[in-house]
């Protein structure tokens, strides 16, 4: 099966912040309509990578191509790449509807079309009845969905998600991960999803990469990612298997739903679901 042509191509990216060399020679590609999950510990340069691709910080060296076109010299608003912050930053002076319509109004889209597109998004993101609410009247999960919908509304060529669900409780977080997967599949979205949570990366990613010490290592597929020692998956999988597998038993009280879920996630790892 031929792979679709790469949509985003990052070549030899070098980024320096103040005096520190944060990213060195980063090269990778994101296929069209796929989500690249990037794993990295705190301080590994995940946010820097996304902000550099979005054009919010300057790059020292390298190229960024989107759909074959160089975008690294373009202003952020001309790249058609939307960046979602870790914290959902909603405009406090606009209600939910206007927050989501923000990008469309910039593009002078007709009012009836704006209404139609936002109403559809409100439906698919389960935000019914909240159109008139402002940011401080929304829960964390709702705010994150609004930020997501605001990005989807402008139909970007690429979405950059910077640990978008890290501030949510586990249940809401799991729900948001499923929502992201469903919506990104429905709309054929290309995305880079950065996280420090292995399980989350396995849930949302189609392709995988690890960011460490300023460098990035990509993996061909899920199976390779799971097998490679540097990803940490094998280590995590054996730990959870130990908790719920032959060494564990019901009376130990360890068999919680959460633990079982974790074990399941890692057990599925070796199956390349080939969702996309």
């Amino acid at each position: 099966m031929d792979l679709p042509a790469p949509d985003l191509h990052v070549q030899g990216l070098d980024v320096r912040l103040e005096k520190e060399h944060v990213l060195r020679g980063v090269t990778f590609a994101v296929e069209a309509r796929a989500t690249l999950a990037v794993i990295g510990v705190s301080g590994s340069g995940k946010t820097t990578l996304l902000r550099a691709i979005a054009g919010l910080i300057p790059i020292e060296r390298g190229h960024i191509l989107l759909g074959g076109r160089r975008v690294d010299e373009l202003a952020p608003n001309r790249r058609n790449i939307v960046y979602l912050n870790q914290e959902p930053l909603l405009f406090p002076h606009l209600d939910l509807f206007e927050n989501m319509a923000f990008g469309l109004r910039l593009r002078s889209v007709r009012e009836d079309e704006i209404r139609e597109r936002i109403d559809v998004l409100i439906g698919s993101l389960e935000l019914h009845g909240l159109s008139g609410r402002y940011a401080h009247a929304l829960s964390g999960g709702q705010r994150q969905r609004v930020a997501f919908g605001r990005a989807l509304a402008v139909e970007p060529a690429m979405m950059l998600l910077d640990e978008p669900f890290s501030n949510l409780d586990p249940e809401t977080r799991a729900g948001m991960q499923e929502l992201f997967k469903r919506v990104s599949r429905e709309r054929g979205i290309s995305a880079i999803f950065v996280t420090h949570d292995l399980k989350e990366s396995l849930r949302v990613g189609d392709r995988f990469a690890v960011l460490r010490d300023g460098g990035l290592r990509s993996f061909a597929d899920r199976a390779e990612f799971c097998r490679d020692p540097s990803s940490g998956v094998a280590r995590e999988a054996s730990y959870w298997r130990m908790l719920t597998g032959s060494e564990g038993n019901e009376s130990s009280g360890v068999g919680t739903q959460h633990v079982a879920g974790m074990a399941q996630a890692f057990a599925n790892c070796d199956d390349d679901h080939g969702d996309k």
Binding site: L56, A75, P76, N77, V82, Y83, N85, F91, V154
Partner: peptide, 15 residues
């Protein structure tokens, strides 16, 4: 942060 969000949504610096 809000300004950056607006920029990646397509707003020029003036907008």
């Amino acid at each position: 942060g809000l300004t950056e969000a607006a920029r990646t949504l397509g707003a020029s610096a003036t907008q």
